[in-house]
């Protein structure tokens, strides 16, 4: 059975407003996930759930874009935002508990954001 879900692409600037609207409508934050789509482009999905319907807000950013933190509306989002920063190297501004790159410590910095070929020294 297909689970109901929708993907709404938005701009980075609209993010805070849209998330606030979700919070007011009683949505629950299901996850924030990041996907590498190009050499320096990343898609970030903010998934919200209400009555088993998943609504995804999608922003497309580069590693240099500063993404505003949504921890003001959803306090628990800090785990995802720190993870996003540590694995993909996306700059998130204003997290309530900012680990500054120590949430997930890896030998190679931003392992999911860089591409390493075989035999090449990182």
């Amino acid at each position: 059975m297909k689970q109901e879900q929708s993907i709404i692409p938005i701009d980075v600037g609209q993010l805070i407003g849209s998330v606030e609207q979700c919070r007011n409508e009683g949505y629950r934050l299901a996850q924030i996930g990041c996907t590498k789509v190009g050499d320096n482009d990343f898609e970030v999905n903010y998934s919200f759930d209400k009555d088993y319907v998943l609504k995804n807000l999608r922003i497309t950013v580069t590693a240099e874009t500063e993404v505003p933190s949504i921890t003001g509306m959803y306090w628990g989002a800090f785990v995802y935002e720190n993870e996003m920063h540590d694995l993909f190297g996306i700059q998130v501004k204003g997290i309530n508990i900012d680990f500054k790159g120590t949430f997930i410590q890896t030998a190679i910095k931003y392992p999911f954001g860089v591409s390493i070929s075989k035999g090449e020294k990182p």
Binding site: L29, A30, Q31, G33, C34, T35, W75, G76, F78, V79, Y80, E83
Partner: peptide, 12 residues
């Protein structure tokens, strides 16, 4: 992307 339940249970 695998979002497991424990990750989201950490803030609570």
């Amino acid at each position: 992307r695998i979002r497991t339940p424990t990750l989201t249970n950490i803030p609570p």
